[in-house]
Design a binder for these strands. Structure first.
Length: 507
RNA sequence: UCCUCGGUAGCUCAGCUGGUUAGAGCACUUGACUGUUAAUCAGGGGGUCGUUGGUUCGAGCCCAACCCGGGGAGCCA
């Protein structure tokens, strides 16, 4: 049978099956060739034994190279030591296409090199695992909203007016008129919520920010639910249920993948606990160390982190020196030297990470101490704040000056706009931004003037308040940031098949 | 736009205060090893040291400008 996949080998133990795939790796021994085959669904070690196959097959097994494609036939044997738990005792092998000098070797590579070979990098284990988790998350998003009675609608990607300034928009030529690639479907989502009750959009979003950081992409996918007859509290309830649902789905369906990328799931499992809801005012106090959380002080915690980082740097430097001294002694076996060298390599990588933390933390501390009530949080402020929590936190009631014109003003205290930012733990920061929308026509018009926006471009939007305005709320979730946190990746670029970012348009 | 770190073999890096023919590991290749999981052993080929200009008897190393990349600030999901 040719439709066998590695994923389904467990149902075929003892049977003779044929797999179709690619060679990920090869090890040879006297009379034996071990092939690691991947077929997209998983990995399987295939053993070619010289004494059990035709000579021609054994010769093919010996000459087959990394990433050659093949059809391979053999008996499925359970073996707990193997990735996936099964191996194939080969009786037949057909080379479909021989590959030559595959650029991505089992050794470490630099980011630039890997990014230039993204089309091939996607074949590696880690990327395989991440893309499967991405798939789970996308499906879970649909499942959650569909299950709660939302309908998926889509906002346009071309927009004619620059809502929040043209500096962050990509301009294109739309039949001779300037048009911009959408940086949010928010306003259209509101129109659709007035038509269909509860909706969500799920599509690509474009931001022309010249940001070169671990959490920015120029093209990313955003989920934007919008709910009629919902207020800020109901919005926060929805966000919490939603994030919990998605993360639990990943924990359920991707244990293998999470393990492959080395994700410690302890923090993820705490997603079942309530998310703290903190007003902006309190968040600022926590940030400045004026308010403690469960007896923990943000500033003091960070200072302790710094001490720890410095101790770690010293320990790493000592270990590197020790291993280098060992290698320097003549007479050590080559293999052992290689072992020490690879350890030193790892240590040096960790050292540069720790050194970076050592440089950053004092800056973060300064930023936190000097923070002024009324400002928006910067990336480091979010890190300092979330350092004290193991679940996402929801910061709400923001100074209205820092939020968009459509955000509803708090009826009790006009200083605040009823927005909410959800900050992920472990240093990931903002993954969701949302809030309750302004419903009053006159306040909205005032805000549009205040932001110096072109009134005529918003006439259609104002119609939503003229014809049956209702309280409504919604939020936007950056898919890639959610994936990055779920997988604890150092950078969002690995969460999307072909990242588009400042300075990167190919492949 | 600004700050910061970097660019040496196909890949990852070393190259001490400037000094003869620029090194290692991996990958590739030849051979040895009956089960390996990036840690076996022996041999082999492979480099305009990002670009341009300068300092010097002499530059991979020093200086300047530029190009490319990493991280961060601003901005944000």
């Amino acid at each position: 049978m040719l439709d066998m996949t590695i994923e389904r080998l467990s149902a075929a133990v003892g049977e003779k099956v044929t797999l179709q795939g690619w060679v990920m790796g090869k090890r040879t021994g006297k009379g034996l060739v071990f092939l690691i085959v991947r077929d997209g669904s998983g990995l399987c070690q295939c053993i070619v034994d010289e004494s059990k196959v035709d000579n021609a097959i054994f010769e093919d097994a010996k000459r087959i190279s990394q990433e050659s494609s093949l059809r391979i036939t053999g008996q499925v044997v359970a073996d707990e030591r193997q990735v996936g738990g099964y191996e194939l005792h080969v009786s037949g092998l057909e080379i479909v296409s021989l590959s030559q000098d595959f650029p991505i070797t089992p050794k470490e590579h630099g980011v630039d090199f890997l990014m230039d070979h993204r089309h091939l990098w996607l074949r590696s284990k880690r990327q395989w695992a991440i893309m499967r988790i991405r798939n789970t998350i996308i499906m879970a998003i649909h499942e959650f909203f569909q299950g709660e009675g939302f309908i998926q609608t889509d906002a346009p990607i071309f927009t004619g007016n620059a809502v929040e300034g043209t500096s962050t928009l990509f301009e294109t030529d739309f039949y001779g008129e300037p048009a911009y690639l959408s940086q949010s479907g928010q306003l259209y989502g509101e129109a659709m919520a007035m038509a269909f009750g509860k909706i969500y959009t799920f599509g690509p979003t474009f931001r022309a920010e010249k940001s070169k950081t671990r959490r920015h992409l120029s093209e990313f996918w955003m989920i934007e639910p919008e709910m009629a007859f919902h207020n800020l509290d109901m919005n926060m309830d929805t966000i919490e249920r939603f994030l919990r649902f998605v993360v639990l789905k990943v924990l359920d369906k991707n244990t293998l993948e999470l393990d492959m990328i080395g994700r410690d799931t302890t923090v993820l499992k705490q997603i079942t606990e309530p998310f703290p809801r903190i007003t902006y005012e309190d968040a600022v106090k926590i940030l400045k160390g004026e308010l403690e959380v469960d007896g923990k002080n943000a500033i003091k915690t960070l200072e302790a982190d710094l001490v720890e980082v410095q101790a770690r740097i010293a320990a790493i430097q000592a270990e590197i020196a020790e291993r280098e001294a060992k290698i320097a002694v003549p007479g050590m076996k080559k293999g052992e030297i290689g072992f020490h060298q690879s350890k030193i390599q790892q240590l040096k990588e960790e050292l540069s990470e720790q050194e970076e933390a050592g440089r950053n933390i004092p800056m973060w501390l300064k930023s936190a101490r000097d923070f002024r009530m009324g400002n928006d949080f910067g990336g480091s402020d979010e890190t300092v704040l979330t350092r004290l929590f193991n679940t996402p936190i929801m910061v709400y009631n923001w100074p209205h000056e820092v939020k968009a014109f459509y955000m509803k003003r708090d009826e009790q205290d006009a200083r605040w706009a009823k927005g909410v930012d959800v900050l992920a733990p472990e240093g990931y920061g903002e993954i969701v931004g949302g809030g309750e929308r302004e419903t009053q026509l006159d306040l909205l018009i005032e805000k549009i003037h205040e932001h110096e926006l072109p009134m005529e471009a918003f006439e259609w939007y104002l119609d939503l308040r003229r014809f049956g305005s209702v309280p409504h709320a919604g939020f936007g979730l950056g898919l890639e940031r959610l994936i990055a946190w779920t997988c604890k990746l150092p950078h969002v670029r690995e969460t999307i098949p072909f990242p588009r970012m400042y300075g990167r348009i190919a492949p």
